[in-house]
Nucleic acid binder design. Structure first.
Length: 573
RNA sequence: GACUCGGUAGCUCAGCCGGUAGAGCAACUGACUCUUAAUCAGUGGGUCGAGAGUUCGAUCCUCUCCCGGGUCACCA
């Protein structure tokens, strides 16, 4: 049983009962046929006024301005808001004015869903409005929505801004702050534009296992679970790379997957425990081909979202039209630190890190040390889309060795606005080399590197059957959407970012109170007095409780019989 | 995980060098037939995040905990 309703919630529940008493179903089952939407009307009414002489629209009441027997209200549907105008004698043509005087003025509230039928007109102040002829209640709202007010300049006066509540109650956030819906609409466009691009090339969208017996393809701590029937541990995937490569082995030329990945690691404004990645693998290609593909694809995606290939991100205008700058890992470090690390051994790299005041630890191998220098000194400088290419072999166990440069692999990462958003290789398809590289990872794991990759024997078996030369790419969709919508936190591009659970107040059920002899109608009074559990009640002074019950009865104007004193004393035995 | 800021009415916030709280919006009662941050008159609404300590007395001071934001660390 829910308790401790606020004053406004109690009033709304009473309104609900009164609607029922009037024979109005506050939650009707019938379809409500809508013939127009707010944005459609505001966009097109003035050009085609005759089209809007009889419209039916539906949405939430978001604001009401009542002036006696006429009222204005704002109705919000999925496309926006439109003002509606109600006149008592128009919606109540007969003697009975209940629908206007009682239902609309008293029993309806901000947040209620209603449908209206009427004609569109221009008010004296020039606002496109719907003159209501019929009013239908579609769903009663029992919790008051925050009321966000906007003035003529668009300034927000009573915002709903607390991030915690916004993320926990996204349904409220998007109702009262509908501008945030644009982020999610753009997110959907990003994904559909990318999917369209791939489909045009004839590549196949696939689905691979989320529950995996071996968590391969990346280096991260997994979420572990257990399958009862098979009585075996399973992991939520940290990557899908090795499964997609199996499908290339199986004979598909191009496969891609949009999917959730799960990593049991820290959370901050760029990390959520589950996130969306897009991975694509195309046979007979290499990473140089992939760079061009990514340029074309991202330009098309950006145009689909913004109409142009450029996007404003914070203070920077970022242009996604290719070609992008290409810079090798070593050259990028040389460019931003003046240090040539290409020929250094592990000891030299450690010394360089020390000189640059970069913290390292003993478990780091050569590749990891180079990555640390890169992260600390180069990354933040890469604002316009930039490919960093040719990584040290130690960092990248799944990429093919560079065709000409010893000790490097054919890999690039795409950096935009100082952040990595894509990662691609000429995929390693030499099964013997692959086995050795994964064995090296096991050695790193032995040194305490908990990011080292796990061995996957079935994947190696697939490679032994033969995988064509292939290029693969992964894109972090959440971060790409952050860029394309100019958001600085991942929570703003996820409908339901992960949160710690809300604290639940310990509350006894009504039956618990009834069991000790409290009359049912008095339970909510006790709750109102602050007694959420029987124990709390028993700890109180019985005489004071008896007196306070009378006080509360008067205060709440309750028409219920006062329990006699003996009964109240009985609750404390 | 560390540091830091915050948690007060449905929402946004103020307040108190310790004497149990205020505003605007929302709500309620009334007035009002073109308003639009509607207006006017009146009214109610709060275990001040939780617990403990100090105190005659804690929303305020101290400690612990919970939840969130920011920064950093971790996270290819």
């Amino acid at each position: 049983m829910s308790i401790a309703l606020s004053e406004q919630e109690i009033i709304r529940r009473e309104s609900l009962q009164q609607l029922r008493a009037l024979g109005i179903n506050p939650y009707p089952a019938e379809e409500f046929k809508v013939t127009a939407q707010a944005q459609d009307i505001t966009d097109n009414f003035e050009a085609h006024p005759d089209t809007y002489k009889n419209v039916t629209i539906a949405g939430r009441i978001m604001n009401r301005r009542i002036m006696g027997s006429a009222s204005f209200a704002e109705l919000q549907d999925s496309t926006g808001r439109i003002q509606i105008y109600l006149k008592r004698d128009d919606i109540c043509p007969d003697e009975d004015k209940t629908l206007y005087n009682t239902v609309f003025k008293k029993l309806l509230d901000i947040g209620d869903y209603v449908g209206v039928k009427g004609y569109v007109f221009l008010t004296q102040t020039g606002e496109i409005s719907v003159h209501v002829q019929e009013l239908t209640i579609l769903a009663k709202s029992l919790k008051p929505l925050p009321v966000v007010k906007r003035d003529e300049e668009g300034n927000i006066h009573d915002g709903f801004t607390d991030p915690e509540t916004r993320y926990r109650q996204r349904y409220v956030d998007l109702t009262v702050n509908p501008e945030f819906k644009q982020i999610f609409i753009k997110r959907s466009k990003v994904i559909s534009a990318m999917r369209n691009y791939f489909n045009k090339q004839g590549w196949l969208e696939v689905e691979t296992p989320i529950l995996q017996p071996v968590h391969g393809g990346a280096a991260a701590r997994p979420f572990a679970t257990h399958h009862n029937t098979l009585d075996m541990p399973l992991f939520l995937r940290i990557a899908n790379e090795l499964y997609l490569k199996r499908l290339i082995v199986a004979g598909f030329d191009g496969v891609y997957e949009f999917g959730k990945m799960f990593r049991n690691e820290g959370m901050d404004r760029t990390h959520n425990p589950e996130f969306t990645a897009m991975e694509i693998y195309v046979a007979y290609k290499d990473y140089i081909w992939m760079m061009e593909m990514v340029e074309n694809c991202l330009e098309e995606v950006t145009r689909a979202v913004h109409g142009i290939a450029a996007v404003q991100v914070g203070p920077n205008e970022i242009n996604f039209a290719g070609p992008y700058t290409r810079l090798s890992m070593y050259d990028s470090i040389l460019k931003y630190t003046g240090i040539d690390v290409s020929a250094m051994d592990e000891a030299g790299l450690r010394e360089t890190c020390a000189n640059l005041k970069i913290e390292v630890d003993a478990s780091m191998g050569k590749g990891k040390l180079i990555d640390e220098i890169f992260s600390a000194k180069v990354e933040a400088n890469l604002i316009q889309p930039t490919y960093i290419t040719d990584y040290p072999i130690e960092m990248t166990p799944l990429a093919k060795k560079h065709r000409t440069k010893d000790g490097l692999v054919e890999r690039f990462e795409l950096f935009v606005n100082g952040k990595e958003i894509a990662n691609a290789y000429s995929e390693l398809n030499d099964p013997i080399d692959q086995r050795e590289r994964l064995e090296e990872q096991l050695v790193l794991a032995g040194r305490g590197d908990d990011e080292a990759m796990a061995m996957d024997d079935d994947f190696l078996r697939a490679l032994e059957y033969g995988m064509p030369p292939t290029s693969g790419l992964g894109i972090g969709i959440d971060r790409l959407v952050m860029l394309l919508t100019n958001q600085s936190t991942i929570q703003e591009v996820l409908f339901f970012p992960q949160m710690r659970p809300e604290k639940k107040v310990k509350v006894a059920t009504a039956d618990d109170f009834i069991n000790i002899g409290v009359p049912a109608e008095w339970v909510q009074v006790l709750n109102k007095m602050g007694f959420n559990t029987v124990e709390e009640l028993k700890a109180a002074n019985p005489n004071k409780v008896f007196n306070d019950l009378g006080g509360m009865r008067k205060k709440l104007k309750l028409e219920i019989t006062m329990p006699d004193k003996e009964l109240v004393m009985g609750w404390f035995e």
